[in-house]
Simulated scan of single mutants.
Amino acid sequence: MTLRHIARGADRILSALEAVLLIALLVLSVAVLIADIALRVFANVALPWAAEATRYAIVWMVFIGGSPAARKGAHISIDALTETLPARHGLRLVRATLLASAAGCAVLAWYGWQLVRQMMMFHQRSPSLEWPMWMVYLALPIGFALMALRFAQVAASPPSAADRAALMS
């Protein structure tokens, strides 16, 4: 088995895991909000933890969702310079930008982990759910580490057929 096959398998597993987590968090958020609204309307009862649980689920969705966005090239970018450069130089600039993004995300993952460690020492808990706050902050290092991995993965991937065609012209 070659390194390329292992990388493809790992990519498929990670992509599936990201998708499952994002779908589960979205379903959980919607279900909690619908239950809270229904209970308010029909039973005159509110779930005091519903807004907090939904907020934390959305935070996790944002940070986990950055990874598939990085893999698909869906993050905001300005391509005016790469469009004006010859294809070979434009491709090099894109790869350099992707590697810089990977490095930036890796640094943010490291600082995010430092924040999580600090939150563990403080033993702070969330107001309604009384969860350890480090669990909420853990979204930062995990999300940024995943984005760093995905940016590096795209930078290291072979040029697409369209890229190869542009390089030939």
Rank of each mutant, 00 (worst) to 15 (best):
T2G: 15
T2F: 08
L3N: 13
H5Y: 00
I6L: 13
G9Q: 07
R12C: 06
I13S: 13
L17A: 15
L17P: 00
E18A: 06
E18D: 08
E18H: 11
V20F: 09
L22A: 03
V27C: 12
V27I: 15
L28C: 12
L28H: 12
S29D: 07
V30E: 05
V32H: 04
I34A: 15
I34S: 02
I34V: 15
I34R: 01
A35I: 07
I37L: 13
I37C: 04
I37S: 09
I37H: 01
A38K: 02
L39I: 02
R40A: 15
F42Q: 10
A43F: 15
A43G: 09
V45Y: 14
L47E: 05
L47P: 09
L47D: 11
P48L: 10
A50C: 05
T54N: 11
R55A: 09
Y56S: 01
Y56D: 06
A57P: 13
V59Q: 11
V59K: 04
W60L: 04
F63Q: 10
G65Y: 12
S67D: 10
S67L: 05
S67V: 09
P68D: 04
P68S: 07
A70M: 09
R71H: 10
K72S: 09
G73V: 07
H75E: 12
I76C: 02
S77W: 03
I78Q: 11
I78S: 13
I78M: 10
D79P: 08
L81P: 00
L81I: 14
T82K: 12
T82A: 14
T82G: 08
E83W: 00
L85W: 03
A87C: 08
A87L: 09
R88M: 05
G90A: 12
L91M: 10
L91W: 06
R92M: 12
L93W: 12
L93R: 14
V94Q: 15
R95M: 10
A96G: 14
A96C: 10
L99N: 13
L99E: 08
A100N: 10
A100R: 06
A102V: 06
A103H: 07
G104N: 14
C105G: 14
A106F: 13
A106Q: 14
V107H: 06
V107K: 08
V107I: 15
A109L: 09
W110E: 13
Y111R: 15
Y111Q: 15
W113G: 15
W113Y: 14
L115I: 02
V116I: 08
R117I: 01
M120K: 13
M121I: 07
F122M: 03
F122I: 01
F122S: 02
F122A: 00
H123S: 12
Q124M: 04
R125S: 00
L129R: 02
L138R: 02
L140H: 00
I142D: 11
G143S: 03
G143R: 05
L146N: 01
M147W: 00
M147R: 04
A148R: 05
A148Y: 03
A148M: 02
R150D: 08
R150L: 04
R150C: 04
R150I: 04
A152V: 01
Q153G: 03
V154L: 05
A155G: 04
A155Q: 07
S157A: 15
P159T: 11
P159K: 08
S160T: 15
S160F: 05
S160Q: 04
S160W: 01
D163I: 02
D163L: 05
R164N: 06
R164S: 06
R164D: 07
A166S: 13
M168G: 11
M168T: 11
M168W: 05
